[in-house]
Design a protein around this nucleic acid. Structure first.
Length: 113
DNA sequence: AAGGTGACCCTAT
DNA sequence: CATAGGGCCACCT
């Protein structure tokens, strides 16, 4: 049984989790969904963040990447995907030659910090 | 109101 | 390693 009806404030729950990701760390979509209490809602997390495009927000959306450790590129993002990499690098997060972030080192562990 | 779709994820070739 | 396919579910026509 889920905490509450998804339609009510579902996005807000995801946003609250994303807000807690500290600078210099990243979380995955699935991880955000689980922490929000909605395991399996990874796609909805992506959609929620997609809705932030062009918004004036304090949500560090750039710190959410996919389970493969990569930024999820899409033409629908209109350049925000490229911006995401720039912002993460500015936080000191390195990308390897395959454009991947090492989740073991830079993945967010809520328990630790 | 009934399908198509995607800032996802996992398993199987 | 790459590709394919299925499951997923709120949003948008």
């Amino acid at each position: 049984m889920l905490p509450q009806k998804p339609s009510m404030g579902l996005y807000q729950r995801f946003y609250e989790v994303v807000r807690q990701i500290p600078p210099g760390r990243v979380a995955t979509y699935g991880q955000v969904a689980r922490l929000a209490g909605y395991p399996g809602y990874a796609r909805q997390v992506g959609y929620a963040l997609f809705r932030l495009q062009g918004e004036d927000t304090d949500i560090p959306w750039q710190r959410v990447i996919n389970a493969g450790g990569q930024i999820s590129y899409s033409p629908f993002r209109l350049g925000y995907d490229d911006l995401q990499k720039v912002l993460l690098q500015a936080e000191g997060i390195p990308f390897d030659s395959d454009n991947r972030v090492d989740l073991q080192c830079f993945g967010w562990d809520p328990g630790k910090a």
